[in-house]
Design a protein around this nucleic acid. Structure first.
Lengths: 121, 121, 121, 121
DNA sequence: GTGGTCTAGACCACC
DNA sequence: GTGGTCTAGACCACA
């Protein structure tokens, strides 16, 4: 588990952790059901406060990407039940991104190409 | 110019204003070169402080979506010179959205469909 | 007399006019003693308010770059008597520019080269 | 951190702060990576509003002279990646200063001497 | 009339 | 503790 944190970024560190775990899961680096490092381990490895990692885990849990198993600690949870919620989120966020693309001269084809590439990766 | 602001949202009001202006421009409600409401007008209409509107305008200006003409006030500015910057932004943000879609069971086809719909609108 | 004005710039229009007249004089496009266009002529040519041109002329006059001759209207005035004042101004402004160059990795040689080129032009 | 602010000046306070921090960095009073005072501290020390200091920091951040580390506050950032942008700025500003020098009777040698002295300091 | 600057407070999110 | 956001006023420069 290697995190690349940007402490100067405007996006909160706990959010960066959350994002990178989600992306790692999507890229297959984290298999469904795989155990995540403990809060303490991840915090010391990244040189940050345990509270920050805890908050990221809480967020993932709340979103359903993570389940805390009494015996195994935190476990990643891919897959279903989230489709509707995620689609709603996608609609909202894609709307804004598409608008920015549109008025900046990015064509529909270029936009969809970027979308496809993003899913592939 | 009708703004729908959510004062309870965690996304700052000035960002909401910025987003809605970008979307209005993409939907054609705001033509290239069209004059935007004055900061004072928009502020009083939305029931917020002029500073907040000012900040939104500054942000749009900095991103190149808006030009403040010393004689006329604020003017919307579509297209040109922004393509590269916008594409980089798209790559980053689409990467995360695609990841969320992927591990939530949204197929490539469904994802691209949503992307296309977002651009269309 | 061709002015290139940027109405979106943060530098006031009257200041832009003043700057371009000074530069034109330095490049020899405006000879010492040459007559400047009337306020009205310059204003209509550039599509701006006469008050704005007037303010630019007032500024030039105050700085000693321009003399209003009762018979000839506004006349450009190159040369001396201003050396001390200009040197003081240069010291102040160059100090800041040099500082920016320095901490941005521009070497002394590069900086002086740019200075020389600026004077040459 | 001692600031000398001129409240009567036409140059905005936040710009004065920005300028003095840049100059302090160039003179070596502020080392690369060194922590700047907090907005609150600087504001109370200088007897001005925190918003004004905040604006100065935002400006420095935007120009790349400052990074705000989420854990530590504001940190000075010398060099790298800014050379091109700074050179463009220098060309423009030096052009005007050189023009003023030229038509005020300041010779090329005197001008370059002042430039060299400015860099030295 | 416009946008730009500034004040003196307040509250919040993050770490 | 930090920076970020927001308010309700005010004043100024520009055109």
């Amino acid at each position: 588990m290697i995190l690349e944190l940007d402490f100067a970024s405007s996006v909160p560190i706990y959010q960066q952790i959350r994002n990178q775990i989600v992306q790692a899961a999507a890229e297959g680096l984290l298999a469904d059901g795989e155990r995540l490092p403990t809060v303490r381990a991840l915090a010391s490895e990244a040189g940050i406060n345990t509270m920050t990692v805890h908050k990221a885990y809480q967020l993932l849990k709340q979103e359903g990407y993570l389940v805390t198993d009494r015996r195994n600690g935190a476990v990643i949870r891919c897959a279903e039940g989230r489709e509707q919620a995620v689609k709603r989120k996608l609609q909202k966020e894609l709307g804004l991104l598409a608008a920015e693309a549109k008025i900046s001269g990015v064509s529909r084809e270029e936009f969809l190409e970027l979308c496809g590439a993003a899913y592939e990766e």
